[in-house]
Design a binder for these strands. Structure first.
Lengths: 165, 165
DNA sequence: CAGTATCCTGTCCGATACTG
DNA sequence: CAGTATCGGACAGGATACTG
């Protein structure tokens, strides 16, 4: 999965991520795709947005390389929208969001869960440092400017931190 | 309905998460908070949005229980905004987003990185199932309706999946 | 079925000005 | 410094109508 910066080259990786997945409808369409839905009317039925908006959103997703549009039949020609590898790489973000919400609910209160489909076991995902195995919520982890930091990013991390979070 | 939907209205945990973190500025303010910034002018300098919008966003964040506003001095009274425990629980989402973008870049191209502040080592976070240790990108993991699923959510997952993703 | 096209309303958001 | 108040343009997004 290669780099694909369509939107606007902000140096902050968080801003870049937000420019891809920061829109409400975009995330819901992605959710549909991960669940195996691929067609215009399925999206519309599941999500309930207007056809003009859906058209616009699908176009950005295709332009951004997250979905591909392909004909699944001729005469009349019909299209479906499927995830690219690049699009699939967004899955951990989507899963982390759903997991965040489910953590606040008792298991019996959850409307949607992630499961291991081989066993049916419910999964409660965590985001960790793979080297230490420690959750990224641990205060020992902090952002710093990287090698490609510009002026603003360097300034941001130049001063000592006000407090640990 | 737009992103301004009341949080309780949606049973889908992903939608709920999006209603909290789905806005561009909200995420950037959170990023500032995680980096130890807490004051109005710092947010404004770092993010560069208008004071009226910043006021509005801070208000939503406080109303949603993600930040607390507290006076750090009297005469004149000055406020700062700090993360609640609830706010801190959003960290994995933010980290997962930044990590997603950094994965597309060579290490030397990264403007911002997560580090273990004890050792300075760069961290490349992953979102996994803690039981098996397998990444949530593995196709064996899939969403299903949970115990509290309503009609629509049950219907969504009732039919066999069109394809594995 | 898979969209386009058009209209219309509400909201986002910067700009500007003002306050204690 | 930490906001509040107001204006106005741009655009998100619903509703509706239409098309091959």
């Amino acid at each position: 999965m290669s780099a694909r910066v369509r939107v606007e080259d902000r140096e902050c990786p968080l801003s870049t991520a937000m420019s891809y997945v920061g829109e409400w409808w975009t995330m819901l369409i992605l959710h549909d795709c991960f669940d195996g839905y691929s067609r215009f009317d399925q999206f519309q039925a599941n999500i309930g947005l207007s056809s003009s908006m859906l058209t616009a959103r699908l176009k950005t997703l295709v332009d951004n390389g997250i979905l591909t549009k392909r004909a699944y039949q001729e005469r009349p020609v019909r299209y479906e929208y499927v995830l690219t590898d690049f699009g699939r790489s967004l899955r951990p973000i989507l899963v982390a969001m759903a997991a965040w919400r489910n953590e606040q609910l008792a298991p019996s209160e959850r409307a949607m869960v992630l499961v291991d489909s081989e066993t049916g076991r419910e999964v409660e995902p965590v985001t960790i440092d793979p080297v230490s195995g420690v959750s990224v919520s641990d205060p020992r982890f902090a952002f710093r400017s990287g090698p490609a930091a510009g002026e603003q990013m360097r300034a941001r991390y130049a001063r000592p931190r006000a407090r640990d979070v």
